[in-house]
Simulated scan of single mutants.
Amino acid sequence: MTIVLTGPATLDATRISLVSSRLQGVIAKMRVDRNDRVEQGEIIAEIITDDLKSELGASQASVEAAHKAVDLAIADRKHAEAALANARQNFDRKKMLLEKTIASQESYDAAVATLRQAEADFDRSKAAIEQARALEASAAATAEVQRVKLEEGTIHAPFDGVVISRDHYVGDTITPGSEIVQLVDTASIILSARFDESSISRLSPGQKAVIRFNGGGRGASIMATVLRIGRQVDTETREFSVDLRPDTLPPNWALGQRGMTTIEIGTRKGVLAVSAAAIERRQGKPGVWIVDSGRAYWIAVTLGDAGGLFVEVVKGLQPGDVILSEPRDVYFGMKIAEGGARR
């Protein structure tokens, strides 16, 4: 007998993105709708950004003006450098002539003053270049901020996936953080199943499972594999979760969809088992109807593992006992014909 565990499961995903905007504005275009498949980088929506375009244009003009100011400051430095070189030559000449008593003290003093003025002008020209370059860097940084803001007006898909919800339309005003669409990576879809904590030691990654979704129909059952075992038990229900990776997805699926999962946990030989339909509970205790001397009698049994449509009986039955496989309206001592038919 193949031993299985059965428990409720819910369709979920580990990679879900609530695609939103960092800007406040009005949606100009919506490029996707529910159920659309998108690729990473594909445009989701566009926001009206006329104000940002104007601000970026002004910032770029400031950058150009700052660049010209740097060029002008460099030209001024070259002029101050030439003036300084000329003042030094004149000073050296006046000094030599003064030593030969050819030049007057007044002309020498004038040369000294001119040299000092030229040196001061040269130092100021260097400081002017540094200031101009600092203003250019500030203008460039402002323009970059405006450019990034403008790019944020176009919303892109963060990864390949399927749009599962859409909350806004063209003309809607959105604020930073407002969800525009919800995107799910189909490769990250899992089924989260729940089992009693007594079963945790019997499960391990790689075990095969079957998922049967509520509602039946085409694609209602799919194969899956145990992906991981939860490490936390609910303190109220005493259940833990198991994530299963589906081999395929049904034609129609939705996150939150419910189903039942059956996981194969091993095989047993020489097991005494009965059909699950033969079990009838009385006051919460399981039992079966046996046929003895042509009459039906209900007896309590102790159940073990389940295996598909069968349940192991560990106590209460003996091999060869005849039971009613699907008892209906049976009462104690009812006559049962050979083969299980009523009399």
Rank of each mutant, 00 (worst) to 15 (best):
L23T: 09
G307Y: 00
I16Q: 08
D185R: 00
G230H: 10
F91G: 07
M30Y: 05
Q182S: 11
I323T: 02
Q117M: 11
T267A: 15
L11N: 11
G215S: 10
R228G: 00
R202S: 14
E280A: 11
F159W: 01
G266I: 08
T154V: 15
A118L: 10
K100H: 06
A111S: 09
A341M: 14
T237Y: 05
R124Y: 10
H79W: 13
Q283V: 06
S54H: 11
D123Y: 06
A132D: 05
G177S: 08
L272C: 07
S192P: 07
A143H: 06
A296N: 00
T186N: 00
R295G: 00
S198P: 04
E39C: 11
F310D: 07
A141I: 06
A9C: 13
L72Q: 12
R166E: 14
A118Y: 11
T248N: 11
G161K: 03
L244S: 04
A193I: 07
R77C: 09
G177T: 05
I265S: 06
E312G: 05
L255F: 10
P251Q: 07
D50W: 14
A306V: 10
D305I: 05
V226Y: 10
Y108T: 01
W253R: 02
R133A: 13
M260Y: 09
F240D: 02
G161M: 04
K315S: 08
M30R: 08
T175H: 13
H67D: 13
I222N: 07
Q207N: 03
V63M: 04
Q105F: 02
L52R: 15
